Every structure is written in C-alpha cells, then in structure tokens.
Simulated assay, not measured.
Amino acid sequence: MQNIKNIVTLALFLIFGTLSAQQEGLLTNYRYHMNAYNPAYVSPEGETAITSSFRQQWTGVEEAPRTMVVSFGTRLGEKMGLGVSVMNDKTFIESQTFIGIDYSYKLKLSEKSELYLGLKVGGNTYSVNTAGLETYNIQSDPSISSLSDFNPNIGAGILLKREGLFLSLAMPRILQTDRAENLNGTATATVAEPHLYATIGYDWPLGKSHLLLKPSAMMRQVSGAPLSIDFNTMLSFDNSFELGASYRTDSAFAGLINLSLQKRLTIGFAYEVSTRNELASAKNTNELFLRFVF
C-alpha cells in the first residue's frame, strides 16, 4: 500500500511539474483573503479582522500539497489601511513561506466610487528536502541542494469599488525567486515567475429580502502555465449563513458553506473534487476557514 501511495505521489509530481508552472498557493474561499493576493484590498469596508485558512489538497495522496494562509487588515484613519499576510505552502519536497506587510491608500473618485492603491513589502523563505528525492527515484540536479534561502520581494495592486461591485488587479510578488521544478523526470533549479491576479465580484441584493447573491471570479496568470479562473457564487442569508459553489477551469468543482456567529466569528468549509482522470485516486480536497472581526 505504501508503494502504491509513493507511485501516485510521483505521478502527480511529474504531471503537475510539466503541465502547470503555478507556484503560489490557491484558495477556494479567496474572497476573504484578498489582501494576500492584492495589498490594495486591506479592510476596504473599514473593519479590523483576522482570517485564517488551511487547505489539504488530494487527501488520498501522502505528501500532497498543503496551504496555510493568515491575513490581517485594519484601517488607519479615513484613507489608509495596514495589513499583514502570511502564506505557507508545502508540496512533496518543497516548503515555502511568504510574509508580506500590506499598505493601501484610498482615493475618492466620486460619491459612489473609490480607488485603492496598494503596496506589499516582504519576503519568501524557500527550502527543498533533496534527501526525499531518493524515496521517489527522481534524478536530482546537484544545484538544487543550495535552494534554502530568504528572498525579499515586493508587490503592488489596485482595487476599484463602486457600490456592490469590485474590480481587483495585482501582482503580489513581482521579483523572481529560486525554486525547484520537474523537467522530464529530473528535479532542476529554476525560478518562480510573478503571478498576475485579476478578480471581479458583485454583491447583488435579491429584492427586499435578507438574501444577497455574491458572484465573483478570480483569474491567475503566470508565464509557462495555462490561464486558470475560479468562478465562485455564494448566497448569503442575512449575513449569517452562506452557501455556494465554485468551479475552477483546470477541472475542479467545490461546495462551500460559511456560518457567522454574532456577526464576528465566521467558520467555513469547502469540499473540492477534481474531474481529471489522472487524479481519480487522489480523492478530495478540504479547506477550513476562520475569520474574526474585532
């Protein structure tokens, strides 16, 4: 049984090392972690909140990707926002943690429109467990033994809000950093390319009821990988209970549920399933979500 798991893990490493060059963690419940992707999105609603998520991908595979994200945001006066975002990813032999300080500044365009400009300053720690390659019989490039370091980085973004609509465009890590990658069965040293994120969303009140429909979409683009888009729709009941679904264009569906307690603590869960044939034995992906408003 252990050998079967190792083979499945190796297959996934080979498949996704070739087909996808995306190196930054993703979340199904991305709307509550927007400042992790766009520094301009620091508490645009004027509230102080801390949010955390844990994502366990492909629960049927040992050493499958795991992502942990913590984000915090608050307002400083009328026009400025300050936040912190931390993202940790662990996949197979790789482990990386990015910590960023987020700053936003609000420009009033009209009575109903606001433009936010954001700057992210931080850095990324990255390491590779080269000894783990022996277990999976992957040939290793000797140059990757040195990939264990800290890389400073910067990011930038803009956010446009108009009543219930928001448009977001950001590149949270502009500078290239070192990493490992699979190339024809050999683990080699390479660089992590900047990721571009574009997000659109709208909060649509349904008549005079307490129902709110919240459709959104997030596009991710990085050199060497196909365009990936998440389509997410949530139905909110009196801002206390949310139920929704998500579709990712690289063949994944998810169901989401969020429950708010006294408008301060929100607990959420997302259950995701891939429709790729090569992931039939990898099983589902689980994502837990917690948010507290001070």
Rank of each mutant, 00 (worst) to 15 (best):
L133M: 08
E242G: 03
G255P: 10
N184M: 09
S127R: 14
G224V: 01
G164Q: 09
S145M: 10
R173I: 15
K161R: 15
N153C: 05
A192S: 06
R220K: 13
Q262S: 10
G207A: 03
S216R: 00
V128Y: 04
T135L: 13
Y126Q: 05
L196Y: 03
P152H: 03
G244M: 00
P205V: 14
E181M: 15
G185F: 05
P142N: 08
S145W: 06
L147S: 09
M234Q: 06
K208T: 12
V191I: 12
S143A: 13
P215G: 12
A225M: 05
V128H: 04
Y197C: 02
T130W: 01
S246I: 15
R179F: 12
T190L: 11
S251C: 11
D250C: 02
S209D: 04
T177S: 14
L265F: 12
A131G: 05
M218V: 12
L206N: 04
L265T: 05
N239V: 07
Y136G: 04
H210G: 14
F241T: 00
I174M: 15
L213G: 04
K263S: 13
K214M: 09
R179Q: 09
L243A: 12
S246H: 13
T233I: 13
L235H: 06
P194Y: 04
S216L: 02
Q221G: 01
F237W: 02
R264W: 09
F237H: 01
P152C: 08
S216E: 04
S209F: 08
P152Y: 11
G255N: 10
A245F: 14
D178I: 11
I138Y: 06
L227F: 04
L175T: 07
L259H: 07
